[in-house]
Amino acid sequence: MGRLSGKNAIVTGGTAGIGAGIAKMFAREGANVCIVGRNADRGGKVVQDIESCGVKGLFVQADVSATQDVQGFVQQTVEQFGSLHIMVNNAAVIHQSKVVDTKEEDWDRIISNNLTSVFLGSKYAAKAMISQNIQGRIINVSSIHAVLSEPSCSAYTAAKGGIESFTRTLASELAPHRITANILSPGATYTELTTPMYTPAVKEALFKRIPLKAIAQPHDIAYGALFLASDESWYMTGSTMTIDGGYIMDGSLPDAAYWEE
């Protein structure tokens, strides 16, 4: 307990799923947390959970792809809490259509909400940290689909790949200020959005690929964010922490063998 005592954090997309899991874990470890999202009812409930840990909570309804909104919630956090130590760019949306059927407006919306939002959040969080000489932590949430294809989700995968490339450059630029920037890359995770997708057939297929034979819960991903937000990760920057039950690393062939025993 207390690994983030005295720290102030922002978590975008913090009203549900992985974002809410991260926000609650940060609060349990002593951080004041501002969550950013669109749903005020959900936001209010997460703030209640945050404040039940004896720390300050704040919900800001905002568009993470709009410059003015991002500047606004960073400023509100600094005004309410006094400073900003941790920025988690987690907000994301998804759109399904094959490349040949994807409309430009859908592409632009996904890139704006998933990638431009990370640029804006990182930019204004870094400016706030630098102005107060804070050795902060920026955590950008990607996906294993930054490196794996996901048919019918080309804009989403492009955005996630962009997050990883962007974060490495960000890490280089912020290193002189002792601000770290790292990537958190989750695999299959139960959230309000994804749970209906995990039908018995999908889970059977996943478990053939995932060595640990399980789908993560939001708190499993949040533990990774906690490490990246803590002082323990001070010598880690520009890196990707993948939490996927071994999905990416496993090169075996399910139900097959190269050599017969």
Rank of each mutant, 00 (worst) to 15 (best):
L228F: 03
T242F: 00
S233P: 11
G224C: 05
S154G: 13
E192A: 15
D220G: 04
S154H: 06
G238W: 08
T180V: 02
A181N: 13
G238F: 10
L193C: 00
H177C: 09
Q217W: 02
H219F: 12
L206A: 11
E204I: 00
I243W: 04
M249T: 13
S230R: 12
L212T: 13
L228V: 05
W234C: 12
N182F: 03
A175Q: 10
S172R: 15
M241A: 11
G245L: 10
G251V: 06
P218Q: 10
T167A: 08
I163Y: 05
H177I: 01
A222F: 07
E173S: 13
T180F: 00
D244R: 11
L206N: 04
G224E: 00
A205C: 00
K213R: 15
H177V: 00
S239W: 01
P218E: 08
G224T: 04
I179G: 04
T195K: 15
T242M: 09
T195E: 14
T242D: 01
A216S: 15
I221C: 04
A159Y: 08
I248H: 03
R178W: 03
T191V: 06
R168N: 02
T169C: 14
Y190H: 15
L226Q: 08
G251T: 12
L193Y: 14
P151H: 09
I163K: 10
T169W: 06
I183C: 07
A155T: 09
A171Q: 07
G162L: 05
A201G: 00
P151G: 11
T167I: 08
G224L: 06
S172F: 13
E232F: 06
I210M: 04
M197G: 10
Y223K: 15
L174I: 07
T189L: 02
A225R: 10
P218A: 10
I243E: 06
F207S: 05
L174M: 12
M236A: 08
D220Y: 07
E204K: 15
L193W: 12
H177Y: 15
H219C: 04
L206E: 07
T242P: 01
V202N: 03
E164H: 03
P151Q: 11
L212F: 11
Y247S: 03
T157D: 11
I183F: 01
E232S: 14
E173T: 11
G238M: 09
R209M: 08
E164Y: 03
L170V: 12
M249D: 04
Y223E: 14
P200L: 05
H177W: 08
I248G: 02
A155I: 04
D244C: 09
E173M: 08
G245Q: 11
A222D: 03
G245Y: 07
G161Q: 11
T195L: 12
C153L: 13
A159D: 07
A214I: 01
E232K: 12
T199M: 08
P186W: 04
G238C: 10
P211I: 02
M241T: 02
A205I: 00
C153Q: 15
N182G: 09
R178H: 14
L193M: 15
G238S: 05
Y235H: 12
E232L: 11
